[in-house]
C-alpha cells in the first residue's frame, strides 16, 4: 500500500509546500527586514516592524478589529441560537431549513456584501424609499461605519454559527427536557439551566468559527466600512499596495496568523472532533 499512498500524497505535498508553506516562510523573512527606499525590502535583519505593531496608530486598528469581530460573534450567537433551536425542533423539514441557512453562504461572498451596499448607501434602497415617503430630507448615514461592517459580517458568517449549534442541539437528550418539565421548570428555565449549558461545546465551536474569519476580514470592512472602519485585513492590504511597506505588512500578517493559530489550538485541544 505504502508506495501508491506516497504517490497519491505527493502532489498535495508539493502544492502545499510550494504555494502555502514557502510563501508563509517568505513572509516570516520579510517581517524581519527593513523597508527599501522604493518599496520592497532591504537588509539588515531587525525586529523594528514588530515594534511598530504597538504604535498607538496601529494598536487602535487592532483593538477595533477585536471589538468588531467580538460584536459580530455576539450578533451571530443571538440570531443563530434561536434559529438552530427552531431547526432542531422542526421534524422532517430539518434538512430543508438547514439548506436554507447554508445556501446563501456558498453563493458569492462579494455579491452578498454588495447587496448591503445596495440597501444602505446614501442613494440606496432604504434611503431613497424613506426620502420618497417624505420621512427624511437628508440621507441617513447607514453605510461606512462600524455598524454596517458588523451587520455585513453577521450576515456573511451566520451559517458558521448555526451549524455547530444545530449539531449539539440535535444530540441533546430529549428526556432531560421532559424531566425538567416534570419537575416543574418553566420553558425558559429549562432553556437557561439545561439547554444552554449542555450546548456549551456548540457555542464554543460556533463562536470560534465566526470570530476567526471576522478578525481577518478584508472585503467586508473595505466595502461596507469604507475608509472609516479599517480592520487588520485592510491594514495588511494597504502595506502591500499603497504604502509599499512589505516588512511591516508581513509582521502584521504574522501577528494575525499567530492569533488565529492560538485560537485554533485552544479550540482543537478542547474539542477533539475534526474534519480531517
Amino acid at each position: 500500500m505504502s508506495r501508491l499512498r506516497k504517490i497519491f500524497l505527493a502532489p498535495s505535498w508539493a502544492i502545499m509546500i510550494a504555494l502555502f508553506l514557502t510563501p508563509l516562510g517568505i513572509i516570516v523573512v520579510y517581517s524581519a527586514l527593513t523597508r527599501g527606499a522604493y518599496g520592497g525590502f532591504a537588509f539588515p535583519f531587525t525586529l523594528e516592524s514588530y515594534a511598530r505593531l504597538i504604535d498607538p496608530l496601529y494598536l487602535t486598528i487592532l483593538v477595533r478589529s477585536f471589538w468588531i469581530a467580538a460584536a459580530s460573534t455576539a450578533g451571530c450567537l443571538l440570531l443563530g441560537f434561536p434559529l438552530a433551536l427552531f431547526i432542531s425542533r422542526s421534524g422532517s423539514r430539518k434538512n430543508l431549513y438547514l439548506s436554507l441557512v447554508i445556501l446563501p453562504f456558498w453563493t458569492s461572498f462579494l455579491i452578498r456584501t454588495y447587496a448591503w451596499m445596495f440597501l444602505l448607501r446614501d442613494t440606496g434602497l432604504i434611503n431613497s424609499t424613506l426620502a420618497k415617503l417624505g420621512l427624511i430630507r437628508e440621507p441617513l448615514p447607514l453605510l461606512y461605519n462600524d455598524g454596517a461592517v458588523i451587520l455585513g459580517l453577521v450576515y456573511s458568517y451566520l451559517p458558521f454559527m448555526v451549524l455547530p449549534l444545530y449539531a449539539t442541539l440535535e444530540r441533546l437528550d430529549k428526556n432531560l427536557l421532559e424531566a425538567a418539565a416534570d419537575l416543574g421548570a418553566r420553558p425558559w428555565q429549562t432553556l437557561v439551566r439545561i439547554v444552554i449549558p449542555l450546548c456549551a461545546p456548540g457555542i464554543r465551536a460556533g463562536s470560534i468559527l465566526v470570530f476567526i474569519p471576522c478578525l481577518g476580514a478584508y472585503l467586508t470592512p473595505d466595502l461596507l466600512g469604507g475608509g472609516k472602519s479599517v480592520m487588520i485585513g485592510n491594514l495588511i492590504q494597504n502595506q502591500f499596495t499603497t504604502a509599499r511597506d512589505w516588512p511591516f505588512g508581513s509582521a502584521i500578517s504574522l501577528a494575525l496568523m499567530a492569533i488565529v493559530m492560538v485560537l485554533m489550538y485552544v479550540f482543537v485541544r478542547r474539542d477533539k472532533e475534526s474534519l480531517l
Partner: peptide, 16 residues
C-alpha cells in the same frame, strides 16, 4: 490553509 485569512494567503503568495 483553510483558517488562514484570505488577505494573508494573498499577500504571502504575492511576495512568493
Amino acid at each position: 490553509s483553510l483558517v488562514t485569512p484570505e488577505i494573508v494567503t494573498g499577500v504571502s503568495l504575492l511576495a512568493f
